[in-house]
Amino acid sequence: MVEHGINATNAVVTMDAALPGIIWGWMITLNMWAKSIGTGVVLISAFLLYRHKKESMPSIRWIMPLISFVALNVFLLFTLVDLHQPLRMVNIFFHPHWTSAITVGAWMASLFTGLITLLLAIGLLDAYPDCARHNEIAKTVRANSELYEKFYPFVVFLAIPVTLYTAVIMAESSARELWQAPTELMQMLLAAFMAGSAALVMVSDKWSQEVRKDLALVLAMAVFFSFVMYMGEYFFSFKSAEAEVTLEYVHSGGEYNVQFWMAMVLGFIAPFFLAVSTMKSDNKTILRFAAILALIGLYLAKDVWLKIPQMLPLS
């Protein structure tokens, strides 16, 4: 069939300059993954505190900001390291351009990290009253420990835009049609629920069974909805030519096909069934295993989704 031959209907590039490869690589994946944990634990802990008494989660006051603090610092470190001129990061604060989601996100994430640091300091010093007893700064922090409860609702509120702004950056990346704002916004939020609940599962050993049941429920719901969205995007992105071509490459057994399906099975399908199974049995080991799988799968899925649209020639 002559119309199917390359030479009959299509054109072939016979000379061109080399095109850039993957521009945003594993560091940006790690950045998004760590941020999901950093904001997710705040959102999920707010949900748990609304549903349960503090006594059923004895360490949450300091362990939540501790996990968030570590994750946010990983996120900020790799944001910085990925820059080709890292020392000029200050330009974002001295020469901000407010139409850019990168700028807005950097300001919000910095404020968020500052507030989490404050919560961590108060939480830890209250939990360990003998620690730095004679230190003036520690004394001041302890004297103002009511700030924790005052700032906490604001931190929870701020966690939402900090979670979502990366989706806006992806939406502003007009060259990558696979990243559509509505789906990316929901995927970011679901990733935060997944990563937040998974991270809290890891430290929930001494928490009440009811709390763990809620964590299992959130984890199962988040992986389920995220999986459904990935399937929808993966198989039915018909409305944009560039997104379709990008996915066609993966569908046809391209480089990231195996990684994508590994992510779906490890990070979404398996944790869903494992988490649901623990809701009645309260098997801590299985729930922890589900949490680890979800965290690994989330990284792999984010990595594929970040990289594949960058393989498309733009000109």
Binding site: P20, I23, W24, L83, Q85, E172, S174, S315
Partner: peptide, 26 residues
């Protein structure tokens, strides 16, 4: 002189017309 090298512009340009200069990293 102001560019921080975040490569956001490279991700945004639908025409692939922007490059990261290997000498200045901008």
């Amino acid at each position: 002189a102001r560019c921080i090298g975040c490569a956001g512009c490279m991700m945004a340009c639908p025409y692939g017309a922007i490059y990261m200069d290997p000498e200045t990293n901008t």
